[in-house]
Design a protein around this nucleic acid. Structure first.
Lengths: 220, 220
DNA sequence: CTAAAACTGTCGCCTAGAGGAACTATTATA
DNA sequence: TATAATAGTTCCTCTAGGCGACAGTTTTAG
């Protein structure tokens, strides 16, 4: 029964979708799960420093421990901490915080590797995650070089709304405002003040609206 | 005999080191090889657009086709074009040019995937290559944000000498000068003029010396 | 329920370094 | 060997946007 509950969780992870129900059940027995309250760090305790995480519910920010800047955000349904698979060193340089109440599953790298040996599709999935990570980094580098800060922020907001927004009855896209200006600045490689500026001009222009709780855009 | 010749080639690739002599021989039969003269593009012909390459001898620059800027350089003994494994699209956006006369082996992605199925260590190797790529990109992004252009250029030169330099009798490290200032500018995300400036001040300071053919640094 | 801490909004100053112009040196091409 | 093309050098101008400052606002904590 417990396994079935867990099964339900993982349904969301495309990584696991392909590998079939039975295998899924077996895997589930290996996975521990946890609730994390908004604002709290994930896996601060040494024991799970290098775990790989599956984020079932909520969202998470990955923070660079050396300078406290946000590297990226992870939406529910995705994997994070996969760095631990190839480089334990690098993995300790980032820490995750819950941006909302979260449900996570975690697994140790050794177990993960065993699993990957057994399930080809899992290994392919991880390869894909790595590939996506490379694409994202290249995009970020490119944007930094060829787009001005205002554009970067605007694009970030629009993509944020695409990712986190839900269209309401009135046809507006509404997304929880989970990030401070400082964090948006980190993610777009700009300064806090510039984010503030661009955001308010966007509001003046009527492109978006926002308050402490939400971002709202007219057209999806 | 032909196979043995090829075997000799691949010896240099750590990727292949682990998988054993016999397997190696089998793999070799699948691989085509080629000589590329300095300055020429690699795999311009459509047929091999998406191949994965092993660089036995020489070095290669990977150029972004959209804006003609150098993305990175590949030293002999390394793999490139591995992008094709996860994203054929992305792979067509870069093209490689020989910085010196090169010997390359190439393999189609499908074959590569078959090989990876058979040889676990090969798959792990590729995973590692991906991991390194991520590290490099993160480093580059970090440098761009937190180091000024002069520092970036200086560090690049010193690393270039580490990578390509060979210590001579006099205890100096000498590296072939394979890159134009414009290309160094691309790689350090600076401008042609700044590279020129920094280089000549480095010369004035006595940190390095250089001419059309070589870079020279006193201490290794 | 109040004090402190952490966020937001705005303004204006200041600097790193891109990018143009102009010229020389070097290397390919005819 | 002349001519064109490319690479390297120097100098100067101009601007994007980081950063400090400070006032207003919201959140957290005790």
């Amino acid at each position: 029964m417990k396994a079935i509950t867990k099964y339900w969780f993982l349904e969301g992870f495309n990584l696991f979708k392909k590998i079939g129900r039975l295998n899924m059940m077996k895997i589930c027995e290996l996975l521990e799960m946890d609730n994390i309250e908004k604002g709290n760090p994930i896996a601060l305790n040494e024991a799970h420093r290098n775990s790989i995480f599956f984020l079932k519910r909520g969202s998470v920010k990955i923070v660079n421990t050396t300078n406290d800047s946000v590297k990226y955000i992870v939406k529910h349904g995705n994997i994070f901490g996969e760095l631990a698979l190839y480089d334990q060193e690098a993995a300790t340089k980032e820490i995750a915080y819950a941006l909302e109440d979260c449900i996570i599953c975690y697994i140790e790298p050794e177990q993960m590797e065993q699993l990957m040996e057994k399930h080809k599709s899992l290994k392919n999935g991880v390869l894909k995650v790595y590939g996506l990570r490379i694409q994202k980094l290249e995009r970020r580098l490119h944007d930094l070089l060829y787009k001005d800060s205002s554009t970067r922020i605007r694009e970030f907001i629009s993509e944020y709304l695409d990712e986190f927004g839900e269209t309401n009855e009135a046809g507006k896209s509404i997304a929880k405002n989970l990030l401070s200006h400082k964090e948006i600045a980190n993610l777009t490689n700009t300064s806090r003040q510039t984010v503030s500026n661009v955001l308010s001009t966007m509001r003046k222009e009527g492109v978006i609206d926002y308050n402490v709780k939400f971002f709202i855009s007219d057209t999806k």
